[in-house]
Amino acid sequence: MNDRFPDGLREMLAQVTGDGDLPWRALLKPGDWLLLVCAAALVAASYPLLWRGGVADRAIVKRDGQLVTELALNVARKYEVTGAIGTTVIEVQPGRARVLSDPGPRQYCVQQGWLTRANAVAICAPNHVTLQLAGRGGKNSSYDTLNY
């Protein structure tokens, strides 16, 4: 079995398995500990830093491309927009928003369900109404779900 490994690897395996106990802790020098702690802190900090951008804080409702209203995503409420063929009902809850009902024949924007991330869009084309979430303008602000 052992001779299936290439020479270098076999020697190394022999070294590691053959030699007695050497505690792992002895292999870390003070600088290593320092670097590991710093690296762990950086990695931990990268989570909120890079994942916060997607949090939405307001819903933008437009009709024919014109801004109708902006709803803050911190209180639950319903909002009615009158569009080209009827009334679209937008429902807002803390942190999310959806199209509750729409007169359009295929109900795409209703079936899309809750929108939670910044730049997510639900478009009720027959009624000329769009619902879009907006965040705090991170570096992705020029992208919306249509770009995926």
Binding site: L27, L28, K29, P30, G31, D32, L35, L36
Partner: peptide
């Protein structure tokens, strides 16, 4: 090398 080993 006195402070930093292969782990760093």
């Amino acid at each position: 090398a006195r402070l930093f080993g292969p782990v760093s």
